[in-house]
């Protein structure tokens, strides 16, 4: 074998190792199906019509044993409502239309979640399907994630939450004192093929849940056909909770 032949062979073999993974677009190269990318669309006009409605909040907090703290400073919330100007301070266009109205908010399950890299124990992590999850076993209660989250989606258990849970749902654990908690896009329900509890509970069809990687999913169709905004997009966190306008 001449030197030239050897080099040619080397280059070819190198190419054959690299090529398949690079040429396959839309796959991770392992032959597995592309992972899901869960997202939620909130129809704020439909939601605002049902003023005072708390169906989604009640359903979520009931199935996840979220305590009802009497002290507002110690409040625990997975899904809640806030005024438009508080959720979208830099997007004043609809400020007038939603004056005095409260809009649903929850964890945005950011594509680039600021809460994940700050966690010293990796209790907060991002799953392949985009869900920003918490491993409550690992949480040491340092609250770095709460400082990092620009959406106020996280709550801290300043005391044992159990006495403040109206009826403990035996199908889901509670949390302990000294642990941070938040919405998990109902990972436990998704695993059983169910929709998140809030989406299930909303009778006004204001919440739509689906897979951004699925062209035929309702969330993709809605986002293609109607204008939508995200909370604080300028931070580059790429939230996966979208708010439909019009």
């Amino acid at each position: 074998m001449t030197r030239r032949e050897f080099l040619r062979l080397l280059a070819l073999s190198g190419f054959s190792l690299v090529a398949p993974a690079d040429l396959l677009i839309g796959s991770d190269g392992t032959g597995r199906k592309a992972p899901k990318r869960w997202a939620m669309v909130v129809d704020i006009f439909a939601c605002a019509k049902k003023e005072g409605c708390t169906e989604c909040i009640e359903a979520c907090h009931r199935v996840h044993n979220v305590p009802d703290m009497p002290d507002a400073a110690r409040r625990i919330k997975w899904i809640w409502t806030s005024p438009y100007h508080a959720l979208f301070p830099e997007q004043p266009a609809y400020m007038e239309a939603f004056k005095g109205r409260r809009i649903t908010a929850l964890c945005n399950h950011c594509e680039d979640p600021p809460c994940v890299p700050v966690c010293p124990t990796k209790a907060t992590f991002r799953r392949d399907d985009g869900i920003v999850m918490m491993d409550y076993h690992r949480c040491i209660g340092c609250r770095y994630c709460m400082a990092a989250c620009p959406y106020g989606a996280r709550s801290f258990n300043w005391q044992d939450p159990r006495p403040f849970i109206h009826a403990i749902d035996k199908g889901y654990p509670t949390r302990a004192k000294g642990v941070v908690e938040k919405c998990s896009f109902c990972d436990e329900r998704l695993a059983r093929g169910l929709l998140p509890a809030c989406v299930d509970a909303c009778k006004g069809a204001c919440l739509v849940f689906g897979d951004l990687n699925d062209e035929r999913s309702q969330v993709v169709r809605l986002l293609r056909s109607r204008p939508a905004i995200q909370r604080k997009p300028e931070l580059g966190t790429r939230p996966k909770v979208f708010y439909l306008l019009a």
Binding site: N65, D169, K170, P173, T174, R175, A176
Partner: peptide
């Protein structure tokens, strides 16, 4: 073990 601080014991 602190399992039951969070996990709920079946009825």
């Amino acid at each position: 073990p602190r399992c039951w601080e969070c996990h709920t014991f079946p009825e």
